[in-house]
């Protein structure tokens, strides 16, 4: 997994733990947390494979752009690997 990652802009229905406001945003991996049962299946009582989970750190500027309250403040969120892609593969 690359250090710089982008949260995929998927929009599946159901119990998803990748928050809307981070989709499409680029951050850096703050730490690797290990593997946890995928909540997207677990929430429905389905067999849930373990998926790698990361803490991803975004700057407020990464998330809110010019609207950021303080651009260098940060936000960390836990994002599953299947919601992340290398940031440089779809650079815009």
């Amino acid at each position: 997994m690359a250090e710089r990652v982008r949260v995929k802009t998927l929009m599946p229905p159901g119990h998803v733990r990748a928050p809307w406001y981070l989709r499409g945003k680029v951050g850096v991996i703050e730490r690797r947390l290990g593997a946890f049962h995928n909540p997207e299946q677990l929430a429905y009582g389905l067999p849930a494979a373990k998926k790698p989970l990361y803490r991803v750190r975004f700057t407020m500027a990464d998330i809110w752009g010019n609207e950021a309250e303080n651009p260098s403040d940060t936000l960390d969120a836990e994002i599953y690997a299947h919601w992340l892609e290398e940031a440089d593969t779809h650079a815009t």
Binding site: P19, F36, L53, D73, D76, A77
Partner: peptide, 8 residues
């Protein structure tokens, strides 16, 4: 630094 408890 804000920490959003999004998962486990």
């Amino acid at each position: 630094r804000v920490h959003d408890s999004t998962a486990d």
